[in-house]
Computed example of a mutant assay.
Amino acid sequence: MDVLNDMALFVEVVKAKSFRGAAEAINVPNSTLSRRISALEKAIGLRLLHRTTRRIELTEAGQIYFERCKRIVDEARLAHEQLGEMLEKPSGLLRVSLPVDFANTYLAPLIAEFAGLYPGINFEFDLTPRKVDLVAEPVDVAIRMGEPEPSHMIARPLARLSPHLFASPRYLELKGEPKSPSDLSDHQCLYMLKAKIWTLDNGKETVAIQIDGRFQLNSVGMIRRLASLDMGIAMLPDEVVSEELADKKLRRVLVDWRGAPTPVYAVTETRLLPAKTQRFIEFLRARLK
């Protein structure tokens, strides 16, 4: 049991990248942590960590040991929690990385509903456009849009969002309404960086249209906002512009055409998930479908 406890302490030190950070996180004296890790290295017969005044770094042996230990520790914690589920509902801190615009415009009401169902769960949300490192950073699950890149991560499909074309009534009054996809070349289009070709489909044919406009952006929220301010035509999922449609700030154009579906995934480091994470993914999958 001492070895298993020391393995857990070693994992916490590596995750925190320092003895001090790990000691604060798990409420164990810094001196105790240092002594236990030194005893672990002595028992193994190999140095696991390079220690400096500011941080620690893994040796080659330490990297191999960490990868194995982390899985063992995660499985032990999961087994403990699953037994606890027999007595109570899921609880604890759920840490989620979310795409900024999709979270603000569509996921927020769903998150509020989920929080009402599970009062024992607290939340830590990181709204960011970057792809967080699920191994190095303290994140339980990342919600990502677009096809997942090849990796050892586990990607669970949640939904596929079909984008349509939208513009404000005022813009269409000033510039006229496109009658076919080819007419888009005569309009101001609001598009993501390096995405100057829109692929549209009407169920019978698929066309690729070269589009142009004064605005190139890396924010779906800004595209939505500029479209509602009469600055051009945007291609966005219905879920992202639901409020603007209800307020009649935007309306569909070329209603028979749609863009290529955008998949939404829940990405985790492992298949072994605690109850809080499992429930969250299951809830989003049911609601997003």
Rank of each mutant, 00 (worst) to 15 (best):
T262Y: 03
L245R: 05
I223N: 07
A234F: 09
I223K: 03
T270A: 11
E244D: 15
T268I: 12
L245T: 04
D238Y: 07
V240P: 02
V240D: 05
R258Y: 01
I233P: 00
R251M: 07
T268L: 13
S228K: 04
E244K: 00
V267N: 11
I223Q: 10
T270S: 15
R251H: 08
R251D: 01
L250G: 01
P237V: 14
R251W: 00
E269G: 14
I223G: 04
L226W: 10
P237D: 09
P261H: 12
T268A: 15
I233C: 02
L226E: 08
P263S: 06
V255T: 14
S228W: 02
G259V: 14
L236M: 09
S228E: 12
L229V: 00
M231N: 11
E244T: 08
R224Y: 01
D247R: 15
E239C: 04
Y265C: 02
R251V: 00
D256K: 09
L254G: 10
G259T: 13
D247K: 15
L229G: 01
P237Y: 12
L229R: 03
K248Y: 08
Y265S: 00
K248H: 12
A234R: 10
G259I: 14
E269F: 04
A266I: 02
A246L: 15
R224S: 11
D238E: 13
P263G: 08
D256A: 13
V264N: 06
L272E: 10
S228A: 11
D238N: 05
T270Y: 10
L229Q: 11
P263Q: 05
E239Q: 11
L254A: 10
R252M: 05
R258F: 00
R224L: 07
L236S: 10
A260T: 15
S242D: 06
L272S: 06
R225D: 15
E239N: 08
M231H: 04
A227V: 07
D230W: 11
A260P: 05
A234T: 05
V255P: 13
L254Q: 09
E269N: 13
L272V: 04
L226D: 05
K248W: 04
Y265I: 02
I223V: 10
L272K: 01
S228G: 06
K249F: 00
A234H: 08
D256P: 00
Y265V: 00
G232P: 02
P261C: 12
T268C: 15
R225P: 07
V255N: 14
V241H: 03
